[in-house]
Design a protein around this nucleic acid. Sequence first.
DNA 1: TGTCAACACGAAATCGGTTTCGTAAAATGA
DNA 2: TCATTTTACGAAACCGATTTCGTGTTGACA
Lengths: 340, 340
Amino acid sequence: MKQKITIKTIAKELGVSTSTVSKALRDSHEISIDTKDKIKAYAAMFNYKPNSLALQLRNQKTKLIGVILPRIVHHFFSTVIKGIEQGASEKGYHIMVCFSNESYKKEVENLKVLSNGSVDGLIVSIAKETLETKDFTHFKDLVNEEIPLVLFDRVVDEILCDKVVVDDVGAGYKATKYLLNQNSLKIALITTPEHVNVGALRRQGYEKALSEKGISVNKKLIIEIEEKENIKAQIERVFDQDIDAVFAVNEIYAATAMRIAKEKGYKIPQEFSVIGFTDGLISEYSSPSITTIAQHGLEMGKQAVEVLIERIEKEAEVYEPKKIVISSNLKLRESTKPSS
Amino acid sequence: MKQKITIKTIAKELGVSTSTVSKALRDSHEISIDTKDKIKAYAAMFNYKPNSLALQLRNQKTKLIGVILPRIVHHFFSTVIKGIEQGASEKGYHIMVCFSNESYKKEVENLKVLSNGSVDGLIVSIAKETLETKDFTHFKDLVNEEIPLVLFDRVVDEILCDKVVVDDVGAGYKATKYLLNQNSLKIALITTPEHVNVGALRRQGYEKALSEKGISVNKKLIIEIEEKENIKAQIERVFDQDIDAVFAVNEIYAATAMRIAKEKGYKIPQEFSVIGFTDGLISEYSSPSITTIAQHGLEMGKQAVEVLIERIEKEAEVYEPKKIVISSNLKLRESTKPSS
DNA sequence: TGTCAACACGAAATCGGTTTCGTAAAATGA
DNA sequence: TCATTTTACGAAACCGATTTCGTGTTGACA
C-alpha cells in the first residue's frame, strides 16, 4: 500500500503545526483565511483523507454495527441484512457482518472479536446450536459490559436486551385459521425441533387455532424436521396420515411438501392446500405459487438497527429492554383456495 | 457503554508502568514470573480485552476486508459473500459489507468511506448503473492509491486490478450446445442489456454455439430485459416467435419463461426446454426443476478473498494483475431432456 | 505610551496500545 | 572486592488525528 498522506505530512510540507492543519481543515475561525486556503488546497491536491482509525480511537466510537447471522444464503436473513444496512446507512453507520453457521463455537468467537471495541453495537440472531445447548453466557457477558445489543427473530428471554421479533404465535394462528376456514380440517404441521423457539411459537398459534375450532391436536400430524437428515423423506412420512393441508414453518418445507402432494396426485388447491412461512422466491416462483406468511424481514432489519442506534447514541439512563413485535400477514397465492 | 478497562487502569491499580503491563500480557521474557502472574490474574479477573482500534492504528492494519455488492437478496451474491466470509475467517480477517443497490452514487460513496483506512482491501462487484455510465474513476483512484482491490463477476478491463470471473462465454456456449444437441434448434435468449458485460459474454457463447451448428443468429429470438419494466410482459413477447427452448441468463428470467411456456400449454421438457443461470433455490424447487449453469458463487468468493489477502500481505513487488476464471458447469434437471 | 483584547498559531495532552532504549539493582565472574 | 553482565522494569516515542491551553504579535483605545 502506498504511503498515505497524513496531517503530519501536510504540516511539515507547509511549515506549520499539525494543530493548524487540523483546525484549517475543519474550518476553524482560529486560522487565517490565507493559511486555511493554502492548507485546503494542498490537502485537496494530494487527496488527503483523515485516517478513520485515528478518529475512531479518539472519538471512542466507530460508527460500525456488528451483525451476526446464522446463515446468509437464506431469503429471510438476507432481507434482514438489507434492512439493517439501509437503516444504518441512513444514520451514517456501516455494518460488519459475520456468520455463525448455526454453530455455538463460531458465535462465541464472533462475539468476542466484535466486542473488543471494533463496533459500537451488535445485532444478532442466535445460532441453532446455541439454542439447543442453552448456554447464553457469551450474550450475558456482553450485556454486563453494557455493549448495546439487539436480538432479532431467534431471541431468548433470559438475555436482557432489546429484541425484535415477528408475531410468531399470531402468524401460526392466522395461517391455520385460514386453512380451517376454507374447510381443510386435517392440517399437518411441519416445524422445527422444540428448541428453535420460533418453531415452538408458530406451533402454539397452530394449536390455538385448532382448539378454537374444537379440533384436538393430533401429534401424528406434527413433524419436527431434523435438518441433518433427509428432509423430503421426513416430510413424506406425514402423508401416511389422512391430511388435506400443510402448514410449514419455512418455505423449503412448504415447497417440498407441495411437491410430494403433487407427486401423490393431489390437485392443489382443490384437494390439498399449502401455506408456508417466509415470503421468498421459492414461494413466488414455484407452481402453483405458495401462500405464505410474509415475515417482513426488511422491516425487522430496519427496526432492529433503529433501536440499536438509539441505544448507542442515547446516554444510557435507566435501561428498559424493549421488545418490538412485527406483525406478519398472509400473502395469498395459488396453493390455497381463495378466501370466501 | 460501561467504562472499559485499559492497560492504564491495570498499571495504576497494580503500581507498575503501562509498558510492564503490555509486556506481561504478551508474555515477554523481560518481566518476572511473579509480576506476570499478578498482571495476568488481574486482567483475567476484570475481563481485559485489548482495544482493537488502538492496535489497528499502531499496526497500520485492520484485518478487515470491505465488500461492496450491488444487491444482497440474491442467491448468487449471498453465496459469494458466504465464500468470502469463509475464506476471510480462515485467515483471521473479517468483512465489512456494503451495498450499492446498483447505484453509481452509492458505489462511489461506499468506496470513499472504505478507502480511508478502515479496511485493508476491497472486493467489489460493479453496480449496473456504473456499468452503464462507464465512469470508473472512483475505481482508478483506488488503484492509484494502491489499495488492494479485487473485482468479481461484473468486471471491467480498464480497471487494473485482480479479477475473478466465471467463464461466461463458455457457459453460454455449453448451455446452448446442450439445447442444440437435444434437438432444440429454435432457442430464444433472454439476457440483459449490452452494458452488463456478463450478459454480453453469455450471449457470445450462445452465438458461438449456434454458428458452429451452422445456424444464423436471429435477433428476434434475443430479448434484452429492461428491469425497470414488467419482466413477464417482456419475456412473453418472445413467445410470439416460433421457439422450442429458452436460455436465460438468470434464474428469475428462466422461471418466468418456464411459467409462460406452461401457461401456453407446452409440455416441458418434451416440447419445450429451459436452461437458466445461477443455481439457486428457484431452479431447484420449481416444478419441473430447472436445468441451470451452476455459477459456483462460493468458489468465487473464496478465490477472490484469497487473491486479495495475498495482495495485502505480500509486499507489493512488481504488480501483475491476475484474472482468475472459474469454470461453470451445467446442472441437469427436469426442464431439459436427458442428454443422449 | 501603556494596557488589553483580538488574532493566529503552536505545544502538549489524549485516545489505548506496542516497542525501543535506558538504567538501577542484583547476580555473576575474576 | 571490583568490574561486568543479567534481570526487571520504566520513560518516552509512536500510530493519526483533535482539542485545550498558552503565547507572541498586532491593533485599538484611553
